[in-house]
Design a protein around this nucleic acid. Structure first.
Lengths: 243, 243
DNA sequence: GAATGCCCTTCTGTATACAACGCCGCGTGC
DNA sequence: GCACGCGGCGTTGTATACAGAAGGGCATTC
């Protein structure tokens, strides 16, 4: 079972467009030319517009009647709001997970975390995907499917920022994840929530400050290639070697 | 300035379809015939499908490739998840509002609440709209636009259930709202969060139980007319008169 | 020289046409 | 008698055509 071989045009277009919007290959403020975009994606305008409408509802693309679609912009306020919302949801998730997760679920999460221990040779994209997967897995352990769904929507909108952030913060992430994991394994909800809150809030401060102080060249062309460059470091002991 | 006189077809279609989906005039499980629906709405299939795609992304409509669109269904699990998520978001909102709301914002909210005191002659739809508006206004005072946005999306999905719930619970709502308002005015975040949590959790238990125990005729045809019937009661003193 | 109005181009908004797929009923074969 | 296959009908999926609006450039006028 490689994949469902029946994939409608619009589905492929949708996924491609989403990927383009997430990593800002569609630049904000710039009107998307439907004709050209449809040609590039090898389709017609009808499925293209259907896909774009879905992305509008998800907040990845904006739409102004008569003027067409354009990619969202990431100002400091939106980033702050999204990070704050993410913190709220993830803290709630980990608290619920402490109460509801099965032992096998926690064991599985620990295994996943262990598998991510060595990030040597991985790209920023891959490491960030692992980070996101860890957080989503916790949300999954909360048992609330809607919570997972909302969180995924938020993740898509801040993924670009997390890529940037992850370029410099790889090493501190792991320890914080371990602390969250430990509290979760101990079913210590207050500790888990506190650890999660601290984990996200620290990132939020750094990220929002960066966006606010004019580093709004977050979406510069050519930036994206950095995310596919393998990282230098090895296991988490690398941190002490650098110290 | 009555309204922006330039309203594209798709926008009108979208709002009409959303209204139909919210109050389950589109019945769940039943395939929507695009041709017929387009004819009914006086448009063609293209804008109809664009609107439906937006509703899919919002979770009001589901879509299965090759088989078309149909209205979401509200099983007990979804309702539980949505209420739980709503509680998480609203508790966070009221906590943030305690810290951030301006005095004028709080005054405005108090005025709104006072204006809702008398529900004599109002329909369930109207009273529920007021209830929702109160909660959304609190979220607005949190200063987090994304939080408001997410909450509105959730509200649309559970509005039908709140209509049903509100038929019997009108009177208790008001006192609870006053308690939340008082804690918010006193900037007492823990009390406000606790009041909000209790307010929503109480409703959640009742509502989920009702859905779970086979009262899944929540979306029976003809049910909707009840929501447009004026209520009997008067001001909140009515409660003591009944007691 | 600058500003404003008009025309042209290009793009969006919507309808419609056609192709492909799924669904249902019937017939045939085992 | 049951199951499998086939064909017709209806629906969805996609392309394309056309109309209307927005934006830009040029000319004209003050």
């Amino acid at each position: 079972m490689e994949e469902a071989r029946e994939e409608p045009r619009v589905e492929a277009v949708y996924r491609q467009l989403k990927a383009m919007a997430v990593d800002f290959r569609l630049r904000p403020g710039e009107r998307l030319n439907e004709g050209a975009l449809a040609r590039d994606l090898g389709t017609s305008r009808t499925p293209l517009r259907e896909a774009l409408n879905r992305l509008v509802a998800e907040g990845l693309v904006t739409f102004r009647p008569g003027r067409g679609f354009c990619c969202r912009s990431l100002d400091a306020e939106s980033v702050f709001d999204l990070y704050e919302l993410r913190a709220v949801l993830e803290c709630a998730a980990v608290g619920l997970a402490c109460a509801r997760a099965g032992d096998d679920g926690i064991a599985g999460l620990e295994a996943t975390l262990a598998a991510q221990a060595d990030y040597a040779g991985k790209t920023v994209r891959e490491v960030t995907a692992g980070d996101e997967a860890f957080h989503i897995a916790i949300a999954g352990l909360s048992g609330n499917g809607e919570l997972v769904r909302q969180l995924q929507g938020i993740n898509e909108r801040i993924r670009y920022i997390r890529w940037i952030d992850m370029q410099t913060r790889v090493r501190t992430t792991k320890g914080e994840h371990r602390a969250i994991m430990a509290a979760l394994a101990a079913r210590d909800a207050p500790a888990a929530v506190a650890a999660m809150q601290g984990h996200i809030a620290k990132r939020m401060d750094q990220v929002v400050a960066a966006v606010r102080e004019g580093y709004s060249s977050i979406y510069v062309p050519g930036h994206a290639v950095l995310f596919d460059r393998p990282l230098a470091g090895g296991s988490d002991d690398a941190q002490s070697r650098h110290g």
